[in-house]
Design a protein around this nucleic acid. Structure first.
Lengths: 229, 229
DNA sequence: CTTTAAATAACACGGGCGTGTCATTGCGGC
DNA sequence: GCCGCAATGACACGCCCGTGTTATTTAAAG
C-alpha cells in the first residue's frame, strides 16, 4: 500500500511505474474483445492475460481474483454500451412517419445487423452477470430500457418529452403509457431473443416489420407528436 | 455389432446383458436432473455418470463422446417436455372470459411458478442446443409454439379450431391471425426472457397481467368463440 | 551507484474436463 | 464346468482452469 492515494498524490520512497486505472482500462478493452468472441464465460484470468499480452501474475496485481476481473469487465462493457448506443438512440429523427421514427429508435437496441449483434452480445453479458449478481437498487440496464420505451410511447401519444433523466425514470402519469411501455419493452426483448436464438425463423426484416405492427397497435396515437429530440 | 437388431431380435452366441435403449433412457433421466440443476453446460460425461451411478467408462458404451450424449439428452428433454406440458395446454377450458381462457393456455409455456420454471429450464436447454446445432428442417420447438399461438389467435377471432396438426403448422388464411400469432409468440418469449433474466423487475403476477393486456389488444375478437377443446 | 519495492513473469499445485486404454467381471451358450 | 465376449470400472493422459508462491526485472529515491 502507501503507493498511491486518490488523484496522482504519491507517497515518498515509492516508484510509480504504471497507472493502475489506465492499465485496468486497457485490460477491460482486451476483455471486451474476448466477450465478443466467446461470451462472459470466456473471461478467464489466463485468457484475458493472453489477449492483453501479459502474464497471469501481472493481472493479479490489478484483480485479486476472477470475480473482481469479471465485475470490472461488466462495468466497462456497460460504459462502452452507453457510449456507443446512447448517441444513436438520441439522434434527432425528423423524417418518416411517427411509427417509423419510433421504430428507428427502438431498433438501435435490436441485434438486426452485425454491428448491433456485437453490441447485443455485450448487453447479454451484462444481463448474464446481473442475473447471477442481482443489483439491490434495481437493474440499471433494465431501468434505462424501460425509461426509453416510456419516452417512445409518451411521444406517440402526444406527451411532451421529459428532458430530466430522473423524471423519465419514474412512472408516467398516463397509465396507458406505462402499460404500453411495458408491452413494448417485453416485445423488444422477445424480438431480440428470437433473433439470437432462432435466427433461421426470424429474419431482421421480419423483426423490423413486426415491431412496426406492434407500434401501430398502440392506442391514442397523435398524427404529429412533439419532435423527437 | 451383431448383438441386437431392431426389436428384441438377438443374434446367436452373444450374451444379452442390458437393453441399450432402456439404459440410454435411464441415463437420459439422470441427465435431465442435471440439466435442471446446472443447465446444459453441466451435462458432462463425468457428471452424468456420477448422477446415474456409473463410471465414465460405462457411459462410453452407450455414447461415444460428449456430443452424442448431449444430443440424446436434448432429444429426451424434448420428449419429456411434450409429455408434460402438451396435456396441460390442450386441457379443455370452459370457464372465464375468452382472454382468460387463452391466457391460461399461453401461461402453460411461461416460467410463472416453480414447476413451470423447471420446465422452462429444460426448454431453454433445448433452444441452447438448437442454437449451436441449427436443425435444417426448421426448429420443431419453434414451429410447435407458433402453431399453438396461431390456434389461440384464430380462436379469439372466431375461426373454427383446426384439428389436423399438419394443417395447424401452416400459415392461417386470415393474415391478421398470422400477424398476431407472431406478435404473441414474440411477446411470450419476451415475458419468459424477463422472468428469468430480471425476476426482480417482473413478477409472475405482472407478467400474467401484461399477457392479458396484449390479448385484449388483439383486433376482431369474438365474444364467444368456438369452445377451446 | 546503491538501495528499495513495485511490477512482472515463471512455475507449481490442485481440480475438472474429455477421452483412450485395459484388466476384471459376469452372463449366455456350449 | 468352461469359454467368449459384452459390460464395467479403474486409471492415465493431456488440456484448461483459478490461485498461490517465488524469483527476476525495473525504475524511482537517496
Amino acid at each position: 500500500m502507501l503507493f498511491k492515494v486518490a488523484q496522482g498524490c504519491y507517497h515518498k520512497d515509492v516508484p510509480r511505474l504504471v497507472d493502475h486505472d489506465q492499465r485496468r482500462a486497457e485490460i477491460g478493452e482486451a476483455a471486451i474483445r474476448v466477450i465478443l468472441r466467446e461470451g462472459l464465460t470466456g473471461v478467464t484470468v489466463r485468457g484475458i492475460a493472453a489477449e492483453a499480452g501479459w502474464s497471469t501474475g501481472s493481472l493479479r496485481h490489478y484483480f485479486g481474483n476472477q470475480h473482481e476481473l469479471q465485475a470490472y469487465v461488466v462495468r466497462a462493457a456497460t460504459e462502452t454500451l452507453h457510449r456507443r448506443v446512447l448517441p444513436r438512440v438520441q439522434r434527432p429523427r425528423t423524417e418518416g412517419s411517427v411509427v417509423d421514427r419510433i421504430a428507428g429508435i427502438v431498433e438501435e437496441n435490436l441485434p438486426l445487423d452485425a454491428e448491433r449483434r456485437e453490441e447485443y452480445a455485450l448487453w447479454a453479458a451484462v444481463v448474464e452477470w446481473e442475473r447471477h449478481h442481482p443489483p439491490e437498487n434495481g437493474s440499471v440496464t433494465w431501468d434505462d430500457q424501460r425509461a426509453l420505451y416510456r419516452q417512445c410511447i409518451a411521444a406517440m401519444r402526444g406527451h411532451e418529452p421529459v428532458r430530466d433523466p430522473d423524471r423519465a425514470a419514474h412512472p408516467h402519469p398516463d397509465p396507458q403509457v406505462e402499460l404500453w411501455a411495458a408491452l413494448l419493452h417485453t416485445f423488444v426483448d422477445g424480438l431480440a431473443s428470437q433473433l439470437v436464438n432462432t435466427p433461421g425463423e426470424l429474419s431482421p426484416g421480419t423483426a423490423a416489420a413486426l415491431l412496426r405492427s406492434l407500434l401501430e397497435a398502440v392506442p391514442g396515437q397523435q398524427p404529429d407528436p412533439h419532435a423527437l429530440q
